[in-house]
């Protein structure tokens, strides 16, 4: 019986991902390209926010992925801790910098959107603050990966950090809400009744979201493949050294 765990074998993963990677990459480019052109040039301006609102097509997908990349790291870390599949740990490692970049994009597009709307690049609004803190969590996670030499030790320790970090990231979110009730508008796809987002916006937005998810997948696949190759190289040199020692 074929099981999902078969793909945790590096060789099998390399084969499957080698096929999936170009596919997701092409689909991601296409949907982001079409989504952005549609969103930027073929949608009406908002009656209050004017054309600045159109940054939503970058802002919302990146914010969505900033959180979900962490969620994916949490799941893959758990899989590593419980079933010890190397690919899972390496996928978490690959997702780290991508998630951090998404967070940064969300923060920067948010600042660009916020400037004309609120008259300032940055406010200490709970939603913004939470994302900034999330960015710090990403930095710590990436730093821990790069600080530890032994790959299995690094995988174990970063996984624990990811678990504990997830709990504290959620706590920080509530702490930030407690700390300051903000002026950021509600989540874009579930706005308050009476102020529903128009389909003219939803279409390109959904397309951009799909594109970003595909882009994320493609980047994680590419990153994981790189990590697997690096591990393979390590294993080969280690074996060579051991054999030399055996011969000598």
């Amino acid at each position: 019986m074929a099981s999902l765990w078969e793909y945790a074998n590096p060789v099998k993963f390399m084969k499957v991902s080698g096929f999936l990677l170009p596919l997701t990459a092409v689909l991601a480019t296409a949907s982001i390209g079409i989504g952005l052109v549609w969103g930027f040039f073929f949608t009406p301006d908002d009656f209050r926010q004017g054309s600045t609102v159109k940054i939503i097509f970058l802002h919302v997908p990146s914010a969505f992925l900033a959180i979900n990349a962490w969620a994916m790291m949490l799941v893959t870390s758990l899989i590593w801790l419980i079933r010890r599949h190397h690919v899972s740990a390496l996928a978490a490692k690959a997702a780290g910098p991508i998630g951090a970049t998404m967070t940064l994009i969300a923060l920067m597009t948010g600042a660009i959107w916020g400037q004309p709307m609120w008259g300032t690049w940055w406010v200490w609004d709970p939603r913004l603050t939470s994302f900034l803190i999330l960015f710090l969590f990403y930095i710590g996670y990436i730093a821990l990966w790069s600080a530890i030499e032994d790959p299995d030790t690094a995988a174990d320790l970063t996984s624990v950090l990811c678990l504990v970090g997830s709990v504290f990231a959620v706590l920080s979110r509530y702490a930030a809400i407690f700390w300051n009730q903000g002026l950021h508008q509600g989540a874009s796809l579930s706005v308050a009744p009476g102020e529903r987002m128009d389909w003219a916006y939803k279409g390109p937005l959904y397309l951009c979201m799909t594109g970003f998810v595909l882009l994320f997948l493609a980047l994680v696949l590419a990153g994981t493949r790189t990590e697997i190759r690096a591990r393979r190289m390590q294993a080969l040199t280690a074996r060579e050294r051991a054999q030399e020692r055996g011969a000598g």
Binding site: N9, P10, R231, Q234, L236, R239, Q243, G246
Partner: peptide, 21 residues
């Protein structure tokens, strides 16, 4: 008792770095 390094790619089952060979 020195561990023998197999010359071929046969130590996948050990479940550690061998899986990457």
């Amino acid at each position: 008792y020195k561990a023998q390094m197999p010359a071929d790619l046969g130590f996948d089952d050990l479940g550690f770095d061998g899986a990457f060979l």
